[in-house]
Every structure is written in C-alpha cells, then in structure tokens.
C-alpha cells in the first residue's frame, strides 16, 4: 500500500488498478457554526480507468462537493475515498498537493488561468511544480497547445483569448503531467454552444486516447458526450446509467472547422 515516504511518480506508474476512483460511504458535512449542512450523504461510487462519466443534478445537490473530494482538494468527513488505491484520508496537505499535481487534471467553469501570464507559462505550471526541466516543460507545453489548436497562440495572455480558447488552454494545462484523471466542473458553463461542442469534442478525444474523464454539467446535450451519467439529488446518488456517446462523424467535421478557423 501507499506509504507516506513513497515517491509519487513511482506510484503513478505502479498502481495501475482497475478502479481509479472508489468512494465508500462518503459523507461530507459543512460545519458553518450554527447549522451543519450535509453536502454528501453516504455516497458509494466506483469509476474505472478509462471511463467518461457525466455528473448531473440540481443546484446544491452536491456535485461540486463530490468534485472537490474526487479532486483531492477536500477530504470526506466520514467514509473513504480511494484514488488509484490510495486512501486520501491518510494524506497530509502537501501529499494531497502532490497527488493533484501528478494524478489529476482540473478544468474549471471559470477557466482559472493565471492572469497576465502567457498561455505557455500557464500550461507549464503543473510541470514546474513537478520539477520538470525548463526545456522539457516548454517543449511539452507547446505540443499540448498545438494539440488543443492553439499552437500559434502560446505567447498570448489570457485576456487576449476568447472563452473557448481560454478553456482549451486550461485543458492543455490539465494534461501537462499526463494525469490518469481529468476532472471538469461545468467546463462549458461559461461558453456558447459552438465553443461548448468544441470543448466536448476535445474531452471525447482525450477519453478515446485512454483518459478517465469526470465532468459535472447541467445540460443534457453536454452529458450526452459521456459514456455514463450519474445523477445527484440532495447529496445522494439517485441514478447511475450507461449512455451511448454522440457519433464520431459530427466530431470530425467540428475538428476540421476548428483547424480552418482563424486563431
């Protein structure tokens, strides 16, 4: 099992388990002083390596709470969360940082790029914290920006990019350390329909290339890209159904359009 002193890169490669995510009776209580809010009520959930899962539910149903726990930003009040077989409850804040750095790629609704910092530097950031050499960092960041269709925009600052472009930079950044898990909390929430579709195509492609993707959304047509849809209500899992993802033909056309579009 995971020992505190283990080097993380080793466990990234060694711990190839079927179950990437395993939640056992997870309860999250928000203690706001006067009242205690139950964010999650005994959630049991397993996500296997290579799945594309959409999480849906009304506002306040506990989606973000779940994402925070899955993303190792937060720990369950009760129960256990195993990420790649590691019980996160046993880890210190710095160890959680290391896990987030190597095992999780975050994509946020509000992009969360670092202001006044070039697209390239933003993509490099997770690699900086992984102590990867400058040369490798730059090469990889450029390659990733190329991959999300922003190869020529690497010097641009976030405020010089459109919402869709910003989100693509964020996706490139999420892929920087080749994490096994991509987490996206309403990644299309601030985008128009066309950009949303582009972003979702990108996620589908990552999924086909072997990434495990977990995304939160309010919209059915976004959830339709996933292979499994989980619904929450009042902090509880109410349905968990497989889904047939959207056709690939549509994706190809979208891809050529994107390449033709002026960047």
């Amino acid at each position: 099992m995971w020992k505190k002193k283990d080097k993380l890169p080793a466990c990234v490669t060694e711990n190839v388990r079927e179950d990437l995510i395993k939640l056992v009776d997870v309860v999250k209580v928000y203690d706001t002083g006067s009242i205690k809010v139950l964010g999650l009520k005994r959630v049991n959930l397993t996500i296997k390596r290579g799945e594309f899962v959409a999480i849906m539910g009304q506002s306040g149903s506990g989606k973000s709470t779940l994402m925070n726990i899955l993303g190792c930003l937060d720990r369950p009040t009760m129960g256990h969360f195993y990420l790649d077989g590691i019980d996160t409850a046993e880890l210190s804040a710095d160890e959680l940082s290391a896990i987030r750095n190597r095992k999780i790629g975050f994509v946020f609704q509000s992009f969360n790029l670092i202001a006044r910092t070039s697209a390239l530097k933003n993509v490099e950031l997770p690699m900086t914290y992984a102590h990867i050499s400058k040369k490798t960092r730059e090469e990889r960041a450029l390659m990733l920006l190329e991959r999300v269709g922003l190869g020529k925009r690497y010097e641009h600052m976030p405020n010089e990019l459109s919402g869709g472009q910003r989100q693509r930079v964020a996706i490139a950044r999420a892929l920087a350390n080749e994490p096994p898990l991509i987490m996206a909390d309403e990644p299309t929430g601030n985008l128009d329909t066309a950009s949303s579709v582009e972003i979702m195509e990108l996620f589908s492609q990552l999924h086909r290339e072997g990434a495990t993707v977990v995304l939160v959304t309010h919209e059915e047509n976004i959830a339709a890209f996933a292979g499994r849809i989980i619904r929450f209500r009042d902090g509880q899992l109410v349905s968990d159904l497989p889904n047939v993802p959207q056709s690939q033909g549509q994706e190809e056309t979208a891809k050529t359009e994107k390449e033709g579009a002026p960047c």
Binding site: D94, S97, N101, N112, I114, A130
Partner: peptide, 13 residues
C-alpha cells in the same frame, strides 16, 4: 484566486 489555482495544480505550502 491565483493561490487557489496554484494549489489545485499541485503547489505545496
């Protein structure tokens, strides 16, 4: 917010 982002991306204390 920048601090939050950096921490999410793996910055330690």
């Amino acid at each position: 917010r920048e601090i939050g982002i950096r921490k999410a991306l793996g910055a330690r204390t």
